[in-house]
Amino acid sequence: MRSQLARTFNSAILTHLHPRSEITMSLHILSQDGGVLAACINACTLALIDAGVPMSDYVVAMSAGCFTKEPLLDVNGIEENELPMLTVATLGATEKVTLIQMESKVHVDVMESMLAVAVDGCAKMREMLDTVVRSHGNEVARSGAL
Rank of each mutant, 00 (worst) to 15 (best):
M125S: 13
D33T: 12
L30G: 15
G121Q: 05
K96I: 09
S11Y: 10
T90V: 15
C122Y: 03
C66G: 05
L146H: 10
E82M: 13
Q4D: 13
A93V: 08
L14S: 13
E80Y: 01
V133N: 01
V133W: 09
T98C: 15
E112M: 08
L91E: 06
T45K: 11
R20H: 13
K96G: 06
M114N: 08
S113W: 02
V117R: 12
N10M: 09
T45D: 14
P19K: 04
Q32W: 05
S143R: 14
T24G: 08
V59E: 05
R2S: 15
T45Y: 05
D120F: 02
E139M: 11
T94D: 10
S143A: 15
T15S: 10
N10L: 11
I100C: 11
G137W: 01
M25R: 00
G35Y: 06
I100H: 01
A51L: 10
L115C: 08
Y58P: 01
S21Q: 10
S113C: 05
A12W: 00
Y58T: 00
I23D: 09
K124T: 04
H18L: 11
A118V: 04
C122M: 08
P84D: 09
S56E: 10
T8K: 02
A51R: 11
G34S: 05
S26T: 15
Q32T: 05
V108T: 08
E95N: 15
S63F: 00
D120W: 00
K69W: 09
A12I: 03
L72W: 04
D33S: 13
D57H: 06
L37C: 12
V59A: 09
R20Y: 15
S143Y: 01
A141H: 02
G35S: 02
P54R: 03
S21H: 04
G35V: 00
P19V: 11
A51N: 13
I29C: 14
G137L: 06
A93C: 14
M128K: 14
M25D: 00
Y58N: 07
L83F: 11
V36M: 07
A51H: 06
G35A: 07
G77R: 13
V60L: 10
L46R: 14
V108Y: 06
S104C: 12
F9D: 06
R2I: 12
F67Y: 12
E79G: 09
I49P: 00
V117T: 15
A38K: 03
S135Q: 10
P19H: 06
M125I: 02
M85Y: 08
S21P: 03
G144F: 06
V53A: 01
H28I: 09
T24L: 13
V117E: 04
G65A: 02
L72P: 00
I29K: 01
A89C: 05
V117Y: 06
G34K: 03
V88I: 13
F9G: 03
M25Y: 07
T87N: 04
D50E: 13
A141F: 08
A12G: 05
E127M: 10
N81I: 07
L14Q: 13
S135V: 03
G52S: 02
D50K: 14
V53M: 00
D33P: 05
Q4W: 12
L146V: 11
N138Y: 03
R126F: 06
T94A: 10
A39D: 01
A6Y: 02
A61N: 05
E112R: 07
C40K: 04
L37E: 10
A64D: 08
